[in-house]
């Protein structure tokens, strides 16, 4: 399970699934309450990290998070009643990421200044990935999203198909293509390293 995903007990009020009987009907019914701001405070950084894995750079990650939270805000009460807000935000981020309207812009937007990256100890720590992170950057957004959902979120192909709104066979095809591309440029270690995290 990804460290980013909220533990069941950590979801608190936004995800408790209890119908909000106090929610007024009609206009303004989706106005946020304090729980929205609380949810933002608790989960925004984790979702930012998720956006970083999804998009590959902190600027697009912030853009995804902002857009997803903006959409959550206008649908807050409805989302609270029906589902887990974090799942809603994550799904929204994935769908935004693969949206063609956004994609055409994002493929031309590389807003990450390189200099801070070099100074960032945390990013330097993860640089030893035999080029996989760089290879992920050149995958089409849908293929990258499939890999993130499968290998970062531990989602099944059926779940991924639901999230992306495609057939299961499409998920498998996209994953196969993405792995083939990565494999073509991937240099395996001389000796397999001990793997702590298993799938």
């Amino acid at each position: 399970m990804s460290a980013d995903r909220a533990a069941p007990g950590d979801r608190g009020e936004p995800g408790d699934g209890v119908p909000d009987r106090a929610a007024p009907a009609g206009p303004g019914a989706d106005e946020p309450d304090d729980a929205y701001e609380d949810f933002y405070r608790r989960r925004s950084q984790a979702l930012l990290r998720y956006g970083y894995v999804l998009a590959g750079n902190p600027h697009d990650a912030a853009d995804l998070v902002q857009e997803a939270f903006a959409r959550l805000r206008v649908s807050w009460r409805r989302v609270r009643r029906r589902t887990d807000p974090e799942a809603y935000v994550r799904t929204t981020m994935v769908r935004l990421h693969i949206s063609r309207w956004r994609r055409l812009r994002r493929e031309r937007v590389v807003a990450e200044p390189p200099e801070p990256v070099e100074e960032d100890v945390a990013l330097r720590r993860v640089a030893d990935d035999r080029g996989l992170w760089a290879q992920l950057a050149v995958l089409p957004p849908r293929q990258r999203a499939v890999l993130v959902l499968r290998y970062h979120d531990d989602r099944s192909d059926d779940e991924i198909a639901d999230i992306l709104g495609v057939a299961r066979v499409t998920v498998r095809t996209q994953a196969h293509r993405a792995l083939a591309k990565l494999r073509a440029a991937w240099a395996p270690a001389a000796e397999p390293q001990k793997v702590v995290e298993g799938r």
Partner: peptide
């Protein structure tokens, strides 16, 4: 091995403090 490297890479980057 590729998939294991991929899991490790994604999770390491997912743990980066942003």
């Amino acid at each position: 091995l590729l998939e294991r490297d991929l899991i490790r890479t994604l999770r390491r980057h997912g743990d980066v403090t942003i």
